[in-house]
Design a protein around this nucleic acid. Structure first.
Length: 677
RNA sequence: UGACCCAUGGUGUAACUGGCAACACGUCUGAUUUUGGUUCAGAAGAGUCUAGGUUCGAGCCCUAGUGGGUCAACCA
């Protein structure tokens, strides 16, 4: 077997290459640079894990830098939340930095730029400036103030800083190239006037640097070696480098920006703006609503730091657009919790079960394993008595052969207790079952070692003793959106896809009494149901549990199957939605030479079906298909046959193609060509 | 219409200097199981967007095309 030595992502390849080219390892330095204008989400986790992961891998420092250059949007609350989330994920930053720490330096550099004639003060409206920018295909036109004398620029900029102008009246712009194909190079704005209190610098400044002017310079000040950001900043890189060129001192390290694709998750949205909208429109209860893809939401839902780090690890880093399936995230949390969560019993949808041959006032204290995956986890006590609750779905009068649960006349085990047999049911006037009457086998007590206790029964049910159960609220969550990529539709707003049933509240669930002393830190597995954790809304005597994620449920799949197979019978619509028929034909054709018998016939008939949607103009270029791609040539031949049948005239190109097929060494191709002669 | 980026099983990522396309999730079997969970054993699923070229040999290099994305806030 090959060793999986070099499973590096492309960023790591870049670092390795730099190292190989002589970049000193101890100069490696990274940073995670959030703007404190919202909460961190699972997409940020990718960036956090990338940067801090690199730090761990190369033993390099990683700064946490707040990109706080826009006081209108930023708040201390977000700073605190971001720090909490990163720390919770288990990462330690080397320095806590703020772009606002560099305001003076940035200002001094800007003055330098003005003195060198590379920046000027503009005083046009934003509309005028936007109009002059031109478009990606047409060059911009220079501002009438572009050639303002240096002394005047200096004076105006000074006045801007001193608060002598109203917001929006003056700007400092870099003088670069109004004709650049890169829009960001068309005299970008360095400074604007903002009259808002900054969460750190208060009202000391009234001019604030733009992102581009602040970011690269901050990287430079902190001597960040690799400045990693998401792909939408790719076109900013030219400007990043241009700004650096203006102030770069060759004795110091020069940072470089590289870009990776942001991580998307299916059935949710991943932009602060959209998440904020969900919060503001009260679709969710807040940034930390357990349905939110925020770090704080996931934490409240019961996700662990390990599970999120593992997810980031498995999902990887690349430059491709992606929508990672939530099932990968769910796998990560199940895997973690399976090893650590305490097993308990809870009944969410109760039905009463009476053990008719069990003494009326007897209570037994049974012992239950805390976690079968961990032999050192110990046990806890569970009270057992004559009247219990079990899940309503765990009983059917006549369950049928594949139903392993309780049904009349059949035996099941009550987890950690006895084997019981259902004898009869009590129904109300409407015919609903209200009670199940059972008998139990006193010899079958779990762990007693008796022959009866070793008996194999098909099913095991969880239960709670009615007299001892405690009540709690349980909140179950479903995906927030009904569409896999709710914000990927041009014609529809992501809000149109909101799942109206994303929250299901069970006001009265019954839990075993052990849960009375649950804390926010505890993680439980409600046996056979899923993983649950206490919600922060809980209070003394008012327990509220969140369902983190269900257990895998192959039985549920069985039950759904009839419905699913109907769906599956519609001929697999292509994932992209609008793949052309000819492309599909090409895809199928490739495999033609590997097929035989029924498979081959199926392939040919689906080609014929698709061929109806193909025009001759589309098909003709494929007549040139290389000789070695026999499958494609056969597919083209078949498609051509369909076209000829539906009235296509034989022209010279077609005759030539048929002729070439007739003399091919592939038999199938010859046969198909023969038919068209 | 311009510039730039991207394209590998259903999904997400690997594949070193060009050399048998790999891993994980998901799906499906079977075994084990006092959780229809876990665990274990196995299977299916990709000629790497298309066409051409270079080469003994291309997922990788070159050309052209197709498809998708990004870029024109006094946001970051």
């Amino acid at each position: 077997m090959k060793e999986p030595v070099n499973a590096l992502n492309f960023i790591e390849h870049i670092v390795e290459e730099d190292l190989a080219n002589g970049f000193p390892k101890d100069l490696l330095r990274f940073r995670f640079p959030p703007e404190p204008n919202g909460y961190l989400h699972i997409g940020h986790a990718a960036s956090i894990c990338l940067n801090f992961g690199l730090g761990e891998k190369y033993n390099a420092p990683v700064n946490l830098r707040f990109d706080d250059t826009n006081p209108a949007k930023e708040e201390q609350e977000y700073v605190d939340a971001i720090k909490r989330d990163i720390a919770w994920l288990g990462f330690q930053w080397a320095n806590e930095c703020y772009s606002s720490d560099y305001f003076q330096q940035l200002y001094d550099w800007a003055v330098l730029l003005i003195k060198e004639g590379k920046a000027y003060v503009d005083q046009q409206s934003s509309e005028e400036i936007a109009a002059q920018k031109g478009s990606p295909t047409t060059a911009g036109t220079p501002s009438p103030f572009r050639d303002r004398p240096v002394a005047e620029n200096l004076e105006l900029f000074e006045k801007m800083k001193n608060g002598e102008f109203p917001a929006g009246s003056y700007l400092l712009r870099a003088k670069i190239d109004m004709a650049s194909p890169n829009m960001h190079m068309r005299d970008p704005i360095l400074y604007r006037i903002v009259n808002a209190a900054h969460h750190r610098t208060g009202t000391k400044w009234c001019i604030y640097p733009m992102y581009d002017w602040a970011h690269g310079q901050s990287d430079y000040i902190e001597q960040v070696s690799h400045s990693l950001c998401t792909l939408e900043f790719k076109s900013h890189r030219e400007l990043y480098d241009w700004y650096l060129d203006q102030i770069y001192d060759s004795s110091r390290l020069r940072p470089k920006q590289r870009e990776f694709a942001r991580r998307n998750l299916s059935y949710t949205v991943m932009s602060k703006r959209k998440l904020l909208e969900l919060v503001q429109k009260k679709v969710v209860a807040g940034w930390d609503d357990p349905r939110m893809p925020t770090i704080s939401g996931l934490r409240r839902r019961g996700y662990t730091p390990d599970s999120i780090r593992k997810f980031s690890d498995l999902a990887g880093i690349s430059k491709r657009d992606n929508v990672t399936d939530v099932s990968l995230l769910e796998y990560c949390i199940r895997e973690d919790l399976n090893k650590t969560a305490t097993r308990v019993m809870a009944v969410l949808n109760p039905i009463k079960l009476v053990i008719t041959n069990y003494p009326v006032d007897k209570t037994e204290i049974l012992s239950m394993e805390n976690n079968p995956e961990d032999p050192n986890s110990g046990t806890h006590e569970v009270p057992f008595s004559r009247e219990l609750y079990i899940e309503r779905e765990d009983f059917k009068e006549d369950g049928g052969k594949k139903f392993f649960r309780l049904s009349l006349g059949n035996e099941v085990r009550l987890k950690s207790a006895y084997i019981i047999k259902a004898e009869s049911v009590v129904k109300d006037e409407a015919g609903n079952i209200v009670e199940i009457h059972c008998s139990y086998d006193p010899e079958s007590k779990s762990g007693s070692g008796t022959e009866a206790s070793m008996r194999k029964v098909k099913g095991t049910l969880h239960w709670v003793s009615i007299a001892h159960a405690i009540k709690a609220e349980v909140r179950e969550y479903d995906r927030l959106f009904l569409d896999e990529a709710p914000d990927a539709h041009e014609d529809k707003n992501f809000m149109d896809f909101i799942n109206p049933e994303s929250l299901r509240v069970i006001k009265e669930a019954y839990l075993e009494p052990y849960l009375a002393k649950a804390t926010l830190e505890d993680k439980f597995q409600f046996q056979r149901l899923g993983y649950f954790t206490l919600d922060t809304d809980s209070s003394e005597g008012n327990l509220i549990f969140n369902k983190t994620v269900g257990l895998k449920d192959t039985w549920a799949k069985q039950v759904e199957k009839p419905v699913q197979s109907q769906k599956a019978s519609t001929p697999n619509p292509s994932p992209q939605g609008k793949r052309k028929a000819l492309n599909e034909i090409q895809q199928i054709s490739k495999k033609l030479t590997n097929f035989s018998g029924e498979k081959l016939e199926n392939a040919i008939s689906s080609i014929k079906e698709l061929a109806g949607e193909v025009s001759y103009e589309e098909l003709e270029p494929l007549f040139n298909t290389a000789a070695k791609k026999v499958g494609t040539r056969i597919g083209v031949m078949i498609t051509l046959g369909v076209l000829l049948n539906s009235g296509q005239e034989k022209n010279q190109a077609i005759l030539d193609y048929i002729q070439s097929g007739l003399s091919d060494e592939n038999e199938l191709l010859r046969t198909e060509a023969e038919k068209l002669k």
